[in-house]
Amino acid sequence: MNRHSHPLLLAAIFAAVATAAQAQPTEIRVSYQPALYWALPFYVATEKGWWGELGLKPAFSTFPAGVPQIAASASKSWDVGGTGSVPAVLGAARYNLLTIGLTNDESAGNALVAAAPKADGYTKNPQSIKGETIVLTANSTGDYAVQSCLAKWGLKKADVTIKSMGQAEIISAMSSKNADLGGLWAPNIYTMEEKEGAKVICSGKDTGTVIPGALVVRADYAKEQPQNVAKFLAVYLRAWKWMNAHRPEAIVLMKKFYDLGGVSISQASMEKEFDTRPTFDLAGQLKIMKGGETSDVDKWMNQIAEFMKSTGTLPEPPQASRYVTDEYMRMVDSDPKLKEFANRSN
């Protein structure tokens, strides 16, 4: 290149400036729950400025639990988001939410936790749980994990007393020795372990039940803006790629993110989040969603639907094939630019 500006370069700069001025980033409203492992990619992508690279401008809203989150979708308060698989099924049944991917496999992150003095007794003899009171958050993945554990030990719902309350109340009740058994999810599990010496006596993973987290979209938004949904997925996938490749840096961001949500857990517990909760890259997502009704995701979601039928929440739960779709993952896969973006680990 000579000292004078190359005409082509100049043109390119002009074009870039023009498109930048023209292409106002489109707003996409993203919902999640604060201080959860699967919500970390949203924070990482924001810190790294990746949304803007695809012309998206995220507007976040956060909810204390999955149920109010999906209720808010009824008023079109958000477009896409991540949530637990149990709320995702409820949202599919009530408000036409589509499940377009999985956030992570959180089977190990949902568990029945016991207060310190009695934990070993329960572990040795799970039958002794019969007749006890379990506090849990109804219609949550934690509820699902607890019921799977009970089923594994051959206990029925009627064998125990279930009291439903929020996660914060459960932590209060267990730490003040007013409840011995609770259904919790991470990072609340770690809070109880670290501060109160409580122990996990059975997680979803121990029962062979897969408890996924779901990426969801409002059906009408997906119809209007399929491109944005695909871009959203690409950003999310890239954040996981990066975090798995740069764990120390990811953990620094994780600490900040959890702090923002009022949660402080140890370095070891944060490592454990990474170690015990598998995530899926683009190829992985496509693989578990492939095959429609026979796909893994459909199978897992249908098991959850069965659970919600058994609790009486959904007398007629929807079939997974009605609301689980890999259409948007395939859009990412078929667009070379998005595919490259989603698989970037830097």
Partner: peptide, 19 residues
């Protein structure tokens, strides 16, 4: 909200969770 087993408030809470 403090873990009731029966009660009208419990009905309201559960119905809220069940949407």
């Amino acid at each position: 909200l403090i873990g009731a087993i029966v009660g009208l408030g419990h009905v309201l809470y559960q119905a809220g969770l069940d949407l």
